[in-house]
Computed example of a mutant assay.
Amino acid sequence: MIELIKKLPKAELHLHIEGSLEPELMFKLAKKNQIDIPYKDIDDVRRAYNFTNLQTFLDIYYAGANVLITKDDFYELTWEYILKCVEDNVIHTEIFFDPQTHTARGVAFETVLSGIKEALSDANAQFGITSCIIMCFLRHLSQDDAFATLEEALPFKDDIIGVGLDSSEIGNPPSKFKDVFKKAKEEGFKLVAHAGEEADFSYIYEALDVLGISRIDHGVQSINSPELMQRLKEEQIPLTVCPNSNIELKVFDHYQEHNIKQLLDFGLNVSVNSDDPAYFKGYLNQNFINICENLPLTEKDVIKLVKNSFNSSFISEALKQAYLKRVDLAVAQ
């Protein structure tokens, strides 16, 4: 099974670029930019990666992001992730970035985006990896703050395919951002949102019915509503599930308890993703390996999960078909 996982070309739809900041790069950039970070050394950072919930992770995530200052920093961050894509046979990636995390520190929107975009452009030229960029609003901040960020993004509409919603979920329901998502849709952005990770399935309903999103990030709490499960199955709304993240943030205590196999067996359109891989102990292949070693997933299940990710992506139908043929070819070989 591990050989199959490594061999299959894959897409990743739920990846926070700031969450791919490895401790080594964090220290390198902290030194270069003369930023104080609350860790003595790399081992000290890794010891801090022992989370009890989403908030304990976010505290470290935002502290780490402070070292990102220049366009070159964002380029290097993105390029390091691209090298992991090459290693894991990820041929298409749709990455999130959190502009508010940086603009609040005085880093210009354009600085962040241009560094990410150049690295992705080079990834396509050098490795043939295709990509999309999705801008996320931080849900612990106000809708007014999100509107200001949307305004900053408008000159770069050609570079940003969609908007999302991330950060502290509980107490910040999707409905809080109803108006800014309406405006984003009018501006032509595709809509996604984190929902039903820690908060209950009502957040998934809100993301679908109030925000009008086309893809749910996480969504594992949907299993607690038979009606919602049926709807997700009938409408084939994608759920971008992140197994390592769910374990590290204590959504499930053990991989054996993870419900991705149940969601898949029910007929839901689920895919596997790595979320914040530097913090959650593994990139895309490791997420696949962890669930395969702990759940009764078959080779057919793994192939289905991989195909779901391409089918749920924001690429053209022609490119989807080309990528799905590559999956079939890898299986045949």
Rank of each mutant, 00 (worst) to 15 (best):
T130S: 15
C132Q: 14
A148Q: 13
E151H: 09
F127M: 04
C136F: 12
A148H: 11
S142N: 07
Q143F: 05
S175H: 10
F137M: 06
H140A: 06
P174S: 01
D145G: 02
V163H: 03
T149P: 03
K157R: 14
F137I: 10
T149M: 10
E152T: 10
S175G: 06
S168P: 01
N172R: 00
P173N: 02
D159S: 15
D159C: 13
A153W: 09
I129N: 07
G171T: 03
S131L: 08
A153S: 14
D145H: 12
A153T: 09
V163N: 02
I161A: 08
S131Y: 11
D158C: 05
E152M: 15
I160F: 11
K157V: 02
D158R: 15
D144R: 12
K176M: 13
V163T: 01
I129H: 04
S175W: 04
S142M: 09
F156L: 14
Q126D: 08
P155C: 11
F127Y: 15
N172G: 00
M135H: 12
Q126A: 04
M135K: 11
S168C: 03
I134F: 11
D144L: 13
I170F: 00
P174I: 01
D159N: 14
I133L: 12
D145T: 07
D158F: 07
E169H: 01
I161T: 09
G128Q: 06
A146R: 01
A153V: 09
L154F: 13
D158A: 15
G162C: 04
A146Y: 01
S131F: 07
D158H: 13
L150N: 12
K157D: 06
A148L: 12
S167E: 05
C132V: 08
A148W: 03
S167I: 00
F127H: 14
T149Y: 03
G164Q: 00
I160N: 14
S168V: 10
